[in-house]
């Protein structure tokens, strides 16, 4: 396992070097805190923020993309090429979310080429969190502020320097590519990292997570959805900011004999999400829609993939215009599960 350190003063050079033959995505300052952006100028990269307001899933799963184009009676495939990409500074929850998305887009042996073309070319350097954000609860859902899942390299901010640990072959190759700028990590560095990791984990709140799937199933008809449904505005915010939400819609757009088939993000909170062509809508109320969001993550995904599809990033909580808090909902569901 390759363990290196990089002097903070050399981060820009490091990114410039690695960005030479890659697209570089990293957090930059934004009016909403920070956001992931394709950066040409590494001096703009800002590693002082917490997790970005929007998740980096856009890098591998863009909000919309053309699947193919068509003209009159024939279709043209789009070229499935993607460029080598470096996703730098994703927080461990976001890296872990990419791992979850991987499961969806390769589910039951069916690969999604549109997703995989980008994902396979993306090297993820995750940045461990020293201080969690106001709504973070990664440890409660099986993650960690210093988690390694989904990342190729895990970085720690040690004040004067970044500690970099290669986790995969791709990560190792990446670090080797920049070896002129880094030093081998010393025992002292490694100890500092261990200490930082312990400190970080301690700061996170523990939220009760309903794990009894049978009890969760029972909650389908529980009263709590009614009130939550009245509060929920039915916007797409929580799904669009979430690093693990992956529902999409496919539509055709046409113009004078030519057209394209596009897929774009969708949200189960929208009333049109389940509207059938016939006009029938099986999810008639916002309560049912909000329930879907929670149960999809905490019941159906565990059934299908063996784990909950929430990495505890807190974005749906900080951004919900109705002040809904998933943590509180989970807490209520857990106590519900206990009585039933």
């Amino acid at each position: 396992m390759l363990e290196m350190t990089l002097d903070k003063s050399k981060v820009q050079e490091f990114l410039r070097l690695l960005g030479e033959n890659r697209r570089l995505f990293a957090p930059v300052k934004d009016r909403m805190g920070t956001k992931f952006s394709e950066v040409a100028d590494p001096s703009l990269v800002c590693l002082d923020g917490l997790n970005t307001n929007l998740s980096p899933k856009e890098v591998v799963f863009p909000q919309w993309e053309t699947l193919y184009t068509f003209k009159e009676d024939h279709a043209n495939e789009v070229k499935l090429a993607a460029q080598e990409t470096l996703l730098f500074g994703a927080r461990p929850c976001d890296a872990r979310a990419l791992g979850l998305l991987d499961q969806v887009f390769t589910w039951e042996g069916i690969d999604d080429p549109y997703y995989l073309r980008r994902r396979e070319k993306t090297c993820v350097v995750a940045l461990a969190c020293n201080t969690p954000g106001e709504a973070c609860f990664c440890t409660s859902v099986g993650g960690s502020p210093v988690g390694e899942i989904g990342a190729d390299v895990l970085a720690f901010d040690l004040g004067e320097q970044l500690y970099l640990r290669a986790l995969t072959e791709r990560g190792e190759a990446l670090l080797k590519e920049a070896s002129t700028l880094t030093e081998k990590a010393t025992e002292e560095d490694k100890q500092a990292v261990q200490q930082a990791a312990a400190e970080a984990e301690k700061q996170l709140q523990a939220i009760p997570i309903p794990k009894d799937l049978a009890a969760l199933k029972e909650s389908f008809d529980a009263e709590i959805w009614e009130e939550l449904g009245l509060k929920c505005l039915g916007c797409g915010t929580c799904a669009y900011v979430c690093p693990t939400c992956h529902c999409f819609d496919i539509t055709d757009e046409t113009k004078k004999g030519v057209g394209r088939r596009v897929r774009n993000w969708d949200s189960c909170a929208f009333s049109l999400f389940t509207l059938h062509g016939s006009g029938h809508n099986p999810r008639t109320t916002q309560a049912a829609r909000y329930r879907q969001r929670v149960l999809h993550k905490f019941l159906y995904c565990p059934e299908n993939f063996g784990e909950a599809f929430c990495v505890g990033c807190g974005r749906c909580i900080t951004n919900c215009p109705a002040g809904l808090d998933l943590r509180a909902v989970l807490e209520r569901l857990s106590s519900l599960a206990k009585v039933t």
């Binding site: 053309t66 043209n76 789009v78 113009k255 394209r260």
Partner: peptide
């Protein structure tokens, strides 16, 4: 104006 990809 909404632009579309060139379609052959």
């Amino acid at each position: 104006i909404k632009k579309f990809e060139e379609v052959a």
